[in-house]
């Protein structure tokens, strides 16, 4: 009978098949464990996050706001493509910002899978004081997820903190000379790009205003006030492009009267202001100029950018003056040490 012949033959065939399959490991690899694919996707996502600065690079993707979100192609956290495992803290902050990115953004800009994978990214930063800071996004992990763990270091942008120790250096000598006859006082912070972007400096420790925010903070401003005055008026903050061969030219700014937290923040005594505050200040001035703002200026690798704080009172209430160099001198710009962190990527 056919059925008997066929069944007997088929049984023999099946037995042979099972033997062959069991003798050749890898032939049907993964028939019982689909986690292999997840591991590969997790590895790939880990590489994108840890070894890639993302795209676009200039201006960096993390400086994009809600309207430009679609232009972000890839979310990489590395400082540059030459520095794997060194992440930039502003990229990390943006990446773990759940109000900015949703599930689809993570899938399309970091995981790049054909199917909608579930994910869980977590980053545990160990601070120098021994505390830990956990950042996490994604859903709780079920059993059988694909996994990769990477050890990284996190770079924080430098801060130019101008405190009372610079007082002698940045105060007009008393009695005032020619400058003293004018009521305007200005204080300049200078960024020399050709010095900052010198290729001899290891990119890990480089100050690159094109990718990381420039932070100028004047603390102890009270120490710079004249005599018995309790405050001075900061008229405005302007930006100048200086050259080696030509006098500084004023740079256009889209809007001085509007606060743009994506481009800059200016705090006077702790209150947020725009770039023409005309407000009295007595203790601290803090300006953070973000890469989105730097990218608006017509600057190249040899430019010099001056940030000028203009004070105007009649009679002058402060005698602050001079040029503070934003450079690699540890006295001028404070650099925090790199922080060690662990990044885990889980995909399922």
């Amino acid at each position: 009978m056919l059925s008997l012949d066929l069944l007997a033959g088929f049984t023999i065939f099946l037995l042979a098949l099972i033997m062959v399959v069991s003798m050749v490991p890898g032939l049907l690899a993964g028939l019982e464990s689909s986690s292999i694919d997840y591991d590969a996707v997790a590895y790939r996502t880990g590489v994108i996050l840890v070894e890639d600065p993302g795209w676009p690079v200039y201006p960096p993707w993390e400086s994009y706001n809600e309207d430009q979100k679609e232009e972000i192609i890839r979310m990489g956290l590395a400082i540059s493509r030459d520095t794997p495992n060194i992440l930039l803290s502003t990229k990390v902050e943006k990446f773990f910002n759940r109000t900015f990115f949703d599930d689809d953004d993570y899938r399309n800009k970091a995981i790049f899978g054909d199917i909608p994978y579930s994910y869980n990214f977590s980053l545990n930063i160990s601070n120098p004081d021994g505390t830990y800071e956990l950042k996490q996004t994604g859903s709780p992990m079920p059993p059988g997820y694909g996994y990769i763990r990477r050890v990284v270091k996190i770079k924080e942008p430098g801060v130019a903190e101008i405190d009372e120790s610079f007082k002698d250096q940045y105060t007009i000598s008393d009695p005032p000379g020619d400058e003293g006859s004018s009521t305007a006082r200005n204080f300049t912070v200078r960024l020399d790009f050709s010095h900052l972007l010198d290729p001899a400096i290891n990119p890990i420790y480089q100050i690159d205003p094109r990718t990381e925010p420039v932070n100028v903070t004047i603390t102890d401003f009270g120490g710079y006030l004249n005599g018995t005055y309790e405050n001075a008026t900061l008229a405005n903050v302007t930006f100048w492009k200086a050259g080696r061969d030509f006098p500084p030219v004023s740079l256009p700014w889209l809007s001085f009267s509007e606060e743009k937290p994506d481009s800059y923040t200016l705090y006077l005594d702790g209150d947020s202001h725009n770039l023409t505050p005309n407000t009295s200040v007595n203790s601290s001035i803090s300006l953070v100029l973000k890469p989105a703002a730097i990218s608006l200026f017509p600057l190249d690798q040899n430019s010099i950018l001056d940030i000028r704080f203009n004070f105007d009172d009649d009679p002058p209430r402060t005698n602050i003056t001079g040029t503070h160099l934003y450079d690699y001198n540890a006295t001028n710009v404070t650099h925090l040490d790199l922080k060690t962190a662990v990044l885990e990527v889980a995909i399922w």
Partner: peptide
Amino acid sequence: VNQSALVGQTTS
């Protein structure tokens, strides 16, 4: 269906 699994294996 399991081609994807093989892709993962060859990736690693």
